[in-house]
Nucleic acid binder design. Structure first.
Length: 150
DNA sequence: CGTTTGACTACGC
DNA sequence: CGCGTAGCCAAAC
């Protein structure tokens, strides 16, 4: 029969939330990093998924933060620049920053945290196997590139 | 029901 | 190194 051209977005969201639950306090993951752990849904090419995945992760976070679900630490998901994507003036944005700071995540003068220091390395192999996930793309720079502290 | 906007990222100046 | 732009899907108007 016909295969849905688009993946089940609800299932994708749940998978994202499942991974986010594994992020320990004081650590952060990026949208792209989380997307890299999830295999491209049926019908989505790897090229398209590379661009769409991070946005879908963002949508999943938006859906959960709207309810502020207590079991999903949505505040630990930030962008690839190490900053909070939510507008700083919004209530949710201030809440995210406050929670991360309370967990020990430090922000520099440009409101960015050092991913090489607080970036999450991803779940263990058993968790990946249990959920059919791919090895995460480490947020840390292999080359040694660093974010300026000033 | 067409338009617009978005919790993104890679790439080019 | 920082800012601006293109691209793509889905949900909101």
């Amino acid at each position: 029969m016909t295969v849905p051209a688009l993946p089940d977005s609800a299932a994708f969201y749940r998978l994202v939330w499942t991974i986010v639950r594994e992020i320990p306090p004081g650590r952060v993951a990026t949208y792209g990093q989380l997307a890299s752990m999830i295999p491209p849904p049926p019908g989505v090419s790897p090229e398209d998924y590379a661009r769409l995945g991070p946005r879908w992760v963002g949508e999943a976070m938006n859906a959960v933060s709207a309810q502020d679900a207590p079991d999903v630490p949505w505040q630990r998901v930030i962008n690839a620049q190490g900053g909070i994507s939510l507008p700083p003036e919004t209530r949710a944005g201030q809440l995210q920053r406050a929670r991360l700071r309370a967990e020990g995540v430090r922000f520099n003068a440009r409101e960015r945290c050092d991913l090489s220091a607080c970036g999450w390395d991803g779940p263990d192999q058993a968790f990946l196997d249990a959920h059919g996930l791919l090895p995460p793309r480490s947020p840390r720079r292999e080359d040694g590139g660093q974010l300026p502290l000033f």
